[in-house]
Nucleic acid binder design. Structure first.
Lengths: 225, 225
DNA sequence: TAAATTAATAATGAATGCAAAATGCAAATT
DNA sequence: AATTTGCATTTTGCATTCATTATTAATTTA
């Protein structure tokens, strides 16, 4: 075995890949807001690239459901509709549920420890009423469970939905009760994981998401009376 | 309201869309086989298009997981690995299971009738030992259940997995017993649907897929000893 | 003046061109 | 003879250009 075998090949992501990632972030972070036109030319100039890779990126994001391409009329940021949200949540529920079962079957002690660590941090943020901080750790916990499930296809599909839900920031608003409830649910999640009780965790995660959805739905109904 | 308002606008799908569909079919139908390089230029000439829309299509298919793009080295048809298959099947199980529950909750009598019709046709094909014909109707039945679930997002995600599984034609080989078993399972599926028993259907569909997977896994093990 | 038609402008879809990278091959070296 | 090195060819990534379709502005006409 030569010393060179240790050296990994350098990966230089192509322009269109960087662009897809960049644009995806811009959409999720709300720099490009829902319904907004995506002016090809302007974006190209802003980011200093030509139209070819930009258009390639737009096609990919459209196939991911983040944009709509109206022929000869360009791209628009696709706003997730209430109807779509009602479609997406059961799916995410199924994903989380599956992830829970898979995770319990093979999660390591180290992974559980890490989860508890993040969970504790999240609690601190909750007690400090720091919602953004809370969400950050909250998201990380769900990511860790997905990772523990050890199914890359599952992660990919889950993320593609999560992105679209996150894009519509229904979640920024949460009542005090709902927040308390969510924290309690997370407590049970950790417990089920420690016990490696797949069925229980699966059910809790599904319920957790259903409650989240109920809160979102409530929020929507309050918004558009 | 003028008479012209009745006339729908001609939808001329853009070239890259047609190309993505075309290439997707070529992959699923095995015209482009797994592992094979996809020579941009040659394909362009064959299909009479320029490289731009072709490259856009390739990017989309890559993001769908049907191709891999090695930078500066072009596209290859991505062969689904055994590991990936093991990832995909639980997911499809979750999808089918969810579809079953949703379908039972809202399927119409007309839809059930249609399902039974296709089911009967499928039985005829089984009795005639016509496997391709059987598969065609089999696939249609699962499509109809998905449609009855009335969740477009679910359908989209399910299809994107189904395509990748279908591409690897593990299914063409099926033992007589397995075939018999599959037919019996389909019998139960129809019954559960008629009874609109969501839980039961959900369980049957999941089991149905698990058995299918077991058969596929068996086939793989026989292939590479 | 307001509606409608036409002209001008801008944006998109697709094709071509060019530079960089990879591949294939033959000569050269060990 | 086998491996390496240099060179030509091919292929890819991206930019640019051309053509077509929308959008806007201007003009005409009722």
């Amino acid at each position: 075995m030569s010393a060179l075998d240790q050296v990994g090949s350098i990966s230089r992501p192509s322009l269109h890949e960087e662009l897809t990632d960049r644009l995806r972030s811009m959409i999720v972070e709300g720099v490009l807001t829902a319904g907004e036109k995506v002016p090809e030319r302007a974006l190209c100039e802003k980011l200093g690239v030509s139209r070819t890779p930009m258009r390639e990126a737009l096609k990919v994001l459209a196939s991911d459901g983040l944009l709509t391409l109206e022929p000869n009329r360009g791209a628009r940021v696709r706003a997730i509709t209430v109807q779509e949200l009602e479609e997406v949540f059961p799916l995410m529920g199924a994903f989380e549920s599956l992830a829970g079962e898979l995770a319990c079957a093979q999660i390591s002690d180290a992974q559980i420890k890490e989860l508890k660590r993040v969970h504790e941090k999240m609690l601190t943020r909750y007690e400090a009423s720091d919602m953004p901080g809370y969400f950050k750790h909250n998201q990380r916990i769900h990511e860790l469970i997905m990772e523990a499930a050890g199914n890359r296809t599952l992660i990919t599909m889950y993320n593609s939905l999560a992105v679209r839900v996150r894009q519509a920031r229904y979640l920024a608003n949460m009542s005090a009760e709902r927040w308390k409830q969510a924290v309690d649910e997370h407590e049970s999640i950790i417990q089920a994981l420690e016990a490696r009780d797949g069925k229980a965790l699966s059910a809790i995660l599904k319920k957790h998401l259903e409650n989240k959805f109920a809160a979102v739905r409530q929020w929507i109904e309050d918004q558009e009376p």
